[in-house]
Amino acid sequence: MIKHLDHLVLTTANLSACTYFYTEVLGMQKEEFIGGTPPVKRLAFKFGFQKINIHEKGKEFLPKATLPTPGALDLCFIVSLPLADVVAQLQTHHIAIEEGPVTRTGAVGKITSVYVRDPDGNLIELSEYD
């Protein structure tokens, strides 16, 4: 029944730090659009055929999760560069690697991953397939 993930919603406590991390560090494209209830200006970070819609803590749009909370996500992204280049990019931005490189299992096989935290404390796994 499910074909693929279209978007997910991330709640942030610090919009500017969140925007910097996902656009400047991870290279996602910032998108502004009109949506929500009532329709208002929204923010998303696009990559490939997916996006992350952003809710700012205390200013969430309807409908929303029952308990929208910054720092509650654990996300894995497959990178488009060699993982060594990703690690160098993280170091350039002074992003601490919490763990890795380590071998894990992705949706379709073995992956090599490094783990970092975004400004809200979400666990971000950056991976490449072996």
Results as ranks from 00 to 15, higher is better:
K46A: 14
S113M: 02
G109L: 08
V86T: 04
F47Y: 15
L26T: 10
F77G: 04
C76E: 03
L8K: 12
E24H: 14
K57S: 12
F33P: 07
R117I: 02
R104T: 03
K110R: 09
M28W: 02
L15T: 04
P101S: 03
T12A: 06
G36N: 04
H4D: 12
T92N: 07
H7S: 06
H93P: 06
V114Q: 01
V114C: 09
S127I: 03
A13G: 15
I2T: 10
G27W: 05
G35I: 13
G106Q: 07
V116N: 05
V9F: 14
C18E: 12
A107L: 11
F47S: 08
T103V: 06
H4S: 14
I95T: 01
L8N: 11
T12W: 02
V114R: 00
K41I: 03
D74W: 06
N14Q: 15
D85S: 05
D120R: 07
V102A: 05
R42K: 14
I95K: 00
R104K: 13
I2N: 08
D6V: 10
P70W: 11
A44N: 05
K59T: 05
P70R: 05
V79D: 03
V25E: 10
I54K: 11
N122E: 02
F61I: 11
D130H: 04
K110W: 08
R117P: 10
P119F: 07
E56K: 15
T66Q: 11
T92P: 02
G36E: 00
L10P: 03
E125P: 00
I78F: 10
H4I: 05
A107M: 12
L62T: 08
Q29M: 14
D130F: 01
T19G: 04
L75R: 09
T69P: 03
N122A: 02
T37S: 12
N122T: 01
T66V: 10
K51W: 15
L126H: 05
H94T: 04
T105V: 11
L83T: 03
F49Q: 14
S127E: 07
G100A: 04
L123S: 09
V40T: 14
V102W: 00
M1E: 11
G71T: 05
G71A: 08
F33G: 08
I97P: 00
L90R: 01
G71N: 08
I78Y: 15
V40C: 12
F61T: 12
Y115N: 01
T112E: 13
L5W: 11
I2H: 12
G121E: 05
G100S: 06
A107G: 07
D74C: 07
K51Y: 15
K41N: 13
G48I: 12
I2R: 12
V9W: 13
T19A: 14
Q29T: 13
I54P: 04
